[in-house]
């Protein structure tokens, strides 16, 4: 398949970076055997740079690889990131998991990625009905931080306003306690405790997750209620104010639990409570590392 201008530019940047020795590894996307799916590729030699590619099928958040020891050992790394994924890089820097000096950010302008299930069915057009909800609320079509920027050739995503992203959140909010409970009990009931959500998340970088802790075993490991609910609750709590909304957890979940309805809701709540959005500024202090004397107090007697 022919290279697009985007690909050429991307490949050139990557090649230069590897040739000059500024990075030892580049994490990027490459075209898969299925043209509608892109898969991650790890490049260490300049001549392999031509494998790199980018399109509206570059769905995965590659920042997840930055938490892996096998990747970390390369030291200086370059990474291809969309605006949403780039926020994960920022959050990792904020949380000391990554040093700005060790990462070259190749920012990809992006006007939305096509939902995998639609792409699999042959959808090739970016539109408000074909992209993920996160793309509809995206404020970072151009990444907030980058060392190199690759412009997009994709037309701008036009929003009619008829498609409401994460519309379920408002509906859920309006439900009674029992109804909410019924909804989530049913969802969490499905959870098989595979932890794919955690594996897929760039910010679940703990070397030993809380569920793996025994003595005490705060979270039941059996995959039935209430252990499931508890896991989902704590996972969501740990990501509150940190989640950058890449949606990888939900995409990874084999039983389709709508995890983004929780993540996005908490992102909104944290913003409303503390005016903080995750991953926008590498110099900002994470929201749960600081406090304000005038923080919301109304719920306390």
């Amino acid at each position: 398949m022919a290279n697009t201008k985007t690909d050429e530019k991307l490949q050139k940047i990557a090649k230069d970076l590897l040739e000059s020795g500024e990075v030892n590894l580049i994490i990027g996307y490459t075209k898969g055997s299925n043209p509608q799916r892109m898969r991650p590729v790890f490049i260490t030699k300049p001549e392999e740079a031509e494998k790199l590619s980018f399109s509206h099928n570059a769905v995965q958040d590659l920042a997840v690889f930055l938490k892996k020891q096998e990747v970390k050992k390369f030291g200086k790394i370059g990474i291809t990131v969309k605006g949403c994924d780039e926020k994960a890089v920022n959050a990792l820097i904020q949380e000391y998991q990554l040093s700005r000096d060790n990462i070259k950010i190749i920012g990809m302008q992006c006007n939305g990625v096509i939902k995998q299930n639609l792409a699999d069915k042959g959808e090739t057009k970016v539109s408000e009905t074909t992209v993920y909800d996160k793309c509809l609320i995206c404020q970072e079509h151009t990444p907030v931080l980058y060392d190199f920027l690759v412009e997009t050739e994709e037309p701008e995503l036009s929003l009619s306003g008829n498609v409401k992203p994460y519309a379920e959140i408002e509906k859920l909010d309006a439900l009674s306690t029992e109804e909410k409970n019924a909804y989530w009990a049913k969802e969490f009931d499905k959870c098989i405790k595979c932890y794919a959500c955690r594996q897929a998340c760039p910010l679940c970088f703990c070397s030993r997750c809380i569920v793996e802790k025994n003595m005490p075993q705060w979270i039941d490991t059996n995959s039935e209620e209430p252990g499931n609910a508890q896991w989902n609750l704590i996972r969501a709590y740990h990501l509150s104010g940190r989640c950058i909304g890449c949606g990888e957890c939900e995409r990874a979940c084999p039983v389709n639990i709508p995890l983004m309805l929780i993540n996005e809701k908490m992102a909104r709540d944290v913003y409303n409570l503390f005016g903080y959005k995750s991953g926008l500024d590498i110099n900002a202090k994470p929201v749960f590392g600081v406090f304000s004397e005038s923080d919301f107090n109304d719920f306390i007697k």
Partner: peptide, 17 residues
């Protein structure tokens, strides 16, 4: 207080009274 405010929201959203 920051943590409780957030956690409490989450509990409520997930159907805890």
């Amino acid at each position: 207080r920051r943590k409780y405010a957030t956690f409490r929201d989450l509990l409520g959203y997930l159907g805890v009274d």
